[in-house]
């Protein structure tokens, strides 16, 4: 039997985007909540909580994009040209976010800081929303022609289901971010933020239930792989357990436990999404015969093997120094002369 290199790379690209969702997820979430604290010091604490790490987090997206290009060039070409304007908006949002973090602290004027606060927060929310909408479209399916080119329109991407998934993503990241920021703060600010965790958690769980039902009712295709390989049912079970564990950790006052549960929830949600769309990279709706699967979208097996070697060498290195750096920057945020 031949080893299924395409499935391996479907999983590996998924791992990169999952890494992105877990890591940039909390800093996009912190950005989404940024405007809800009014005080300058509190806002600086928010920014400095993610200051030393957001850049490394965003690399997961860039590398995920590179890996998608290398492993599934047809999918990369179709999705990015098809979602042209949506992706341009995402890029603009990511640019604004990056420079807002960098520029805000450089001047003390109130209008200056307010302007960068707004662009930081709006661009964080917009990024999360657009990522969700893109995933929603991949789940729902987009119209492709026989040459695998996108045959729809920009407005056609804004169907109810993708919008629902966009909102779910914003609420998920907001919850993930609020759990993270509680870990990085102390005193009165932390007490206030703990209240936010409850609110964002309830909002997310409502959206989660809504999205789950909408998927079950409108996109039965997402169940196909689960039905073929029933052992995979462990994933939705663990997903529900991870989500249920968040309020449990929170009520017991286990901040770090809640964060780990939230990370696990994101991991299993991404896994569930991957299982749902598998073996399709881009499902064509209508005309499913034009779909891009992991087989007709993939690079040659030679290339997939070479890149597997990259990952085997690179990933342990990346994980070891990423963990070391998180370890060095553990603990509460202290504002000093180097801070944003």
């Amino acid at each position: 039997m031949n080893f299924d290199w395409q499935t391996l790379w479907f999983i590996l690209v998924g791992v990169l985007f999952t890494g992105y969702a877990i890591l940039d997820g909390f800093d996009l979430g912190v950005g989404a909540l940024h405007l809800f604290v009014k005080d300058d010091t509190e806002r600086r604490i928010f920014l400095n909580a993610i200051g030393p790490i957001w850049d490394g987090n965003e690399v997961w997206l860039v590398t995920g994009g590179g890996a998608l290009f290398a492993a599934f060039p047809e999918a990369y070409a179709t999705v990015f040209s098809g979602f042209y304007l949506a992706f341009m908006l995402l890029l603009v949002a990511l640019i604004f976010r990056a420079v807002a973090i960098e520029f805000r602290s450089k001047q003390p004027m109130k209008w200056w800081r307010q302007a960068w606060d707004i662009s930081f927060s709006i661009s964080s929310i917009l990024s999360a929303f657009l990522i969700g909408v893109a995933m929603g479209n991949l789940a729902w399916g987009i119209p492709l022609d026989a040459g695998h080119e996108f045959a729809g329109t920009f407005l056609g991407l804004l169907k109810p289901f993708p919008i629902l998934l966009g909102l779910t993503t914003v609420s998920l990241f907001a919850m993930h971010g609020s759990i993270f920021i509680v870990l990085k703060t102390e005193g009165a600010l932390q007490a206030k933020l703990k209240g936010w965790v409850k609110n964002t958690m309830i909002t997310f769980i409502l959206f989660y239930v809504l999205t789950t039902f909408a998927t079950l009712i409108y996109i039965p295709r997402m169940m196909t792989t689960l039905q073929q390989a029933p052992w995979l049912f462990i994933v939705p079970v663990l997903n529900v357990l991870a989500i249920a564990n968040i309020p449990r950790n929170v009520s017991k006052g286990q901040g770090f436990g809640a964060f780990l549960s939230s990370c696990a929830a994101l991991f299993f949600l991404m896994a569930l999404f991957g299982i749902g769309v598998y073996p399709y990279m881009v499902f064509s709706n209508p005309s499913p015969e034009n779909s891009l699967t992991i087989y007709n979208a993939a690079s040659s097996v030679t290339t997939l093997k070479i890149m597997s070697l990259f990952v085997a060498v690179g990933l342990p290195l990346i994980l070891s120094y990423t963990l070391s750096i998180y370890w060095i920057f553990r603990g509460k945020v202290k504002l000093d002369s180097l801070s944003y």
């Binding site: 690399v59 890996a67 990952v311």
Partner: peptide, 25 residues
Amino acid sequence: GDVFGSALAAEGVFAFFLESGFLGL
């Protein structure tokens, strides 16, 4: 994509993570 994409992916795996990770430090 089969040729050019791998170079970009390698850049991500071997370069971007390294520089961005240690930049914080």
